[in-house]
Amino acid sequence: MLDKKITFTLNGKKVEFIGDPLRRLIDTLREDFGLTGVKEGCGEGECGACSVIKDGKLVTSCIIPMGAVYGADIWTIEGIRDTELGSTIVEAFADGGAVQCGFCIPGMVLASYVLLKEKSDPSEEEIRQAISGNICRCTGYDLIVKSIRLADERRRGV
């Protein structure tokens, strides 16, 4: 069976894609759905700027063919930022001075979201491990790590 129509859930809404199943997910998100919070960095899955959440897992959308998205549940920064945990992380990043140029931040927020969804009170090593696939060329990571800890403390009411 040949299949050119790919249906999936995007930020909580059912959507449909008709086209090249080898088109990159990042291109579809940015160009077809206007979700420009998804950034392209290396283009080969190593820098994490294009991170999205697929079926609860953090993945890099620049190497995912649309064919692999069939039936998946995809979340981008645009869908996450207004959730309770997402907005807590975004505010903590702003208050903690985690953002300089901002290019890596959507991926960093999503990596933080996946970590904090799964774990309460993560250690510094666990935080650094969780964002190890997201490369930042500005901050030196320390303020990002502190901001993730701040977000965790705030959501726990510490």
Partner: peptide, 26 residues
């Protein structure tokens, strides 16, 4: 084209690249 099959045996009879995790295809 994306080809969906009903079994691995059916996939063997098709011509194309196999999609598993998807990290190599692009």
């Amino acid at each position: 084209e994306l080809i969906r099959v009903n079994s691995l045996e059916e996939a063997l009879g098709k011509k194309g690249a196999y999609l598993a995790g998807g990290t190599e295809i692009l």
